[in-house]
């Protein structure tokens, strides 16, 4: 009966193809970028270190750092909130 109801009103719970897609995206990123979670963390720490030389950043708070896949290519997508530019001696 519940099935019938769902059918009539076309309201479906989460579709299994969405699971498939989600899992695939994750799989393909990790097939392509063969890094362990530990290596990813280290890369993040090192990149943050370099950025901190130029701008003042919020620290880990509000920082986003992830691998994403678009058009068959993996991209490193990050959003790092900046507080202000670090004062530097005029060159």
């Amino acid at each position: 009966m519940r099935e019938l109801f769902k059918n009539i009103f076309g309201t479906k719970p989460k579709q299994s193809k969405d699971d498939a897609k989600q899992r695939l995206k994750f799989l393909l990123i990790h097939d392509q970028v063969d890094l362990t979670p530990g290596q990813l963390e280290q890369m993040k720490a090192e990149i943050m270190e370099v950025i901190a030389r130029y701008v003042e950043i919020e620290g880990d708070h509000g920082t986003e750092f992830k691998l994403a896949r678009e058009d068959g290519h993996v991209a490193l997508v990050s959003s790092i909130p900046v507080r202000r530019v670090v004062e530097r001696a005029a060159s």
Partner: peptide
């Protein structure tokens, strides 16, 4: 199955494989 959302459709697949 595509219509009921239990099989990835061509848009889903093309988004991933991009060819």
């Amino acid at each position: 199955m595509v219509a009921s959302g239990d099989m990835m459709n061509k848009e889903d697949i093309l988004e991933i494989l991009a060819i």
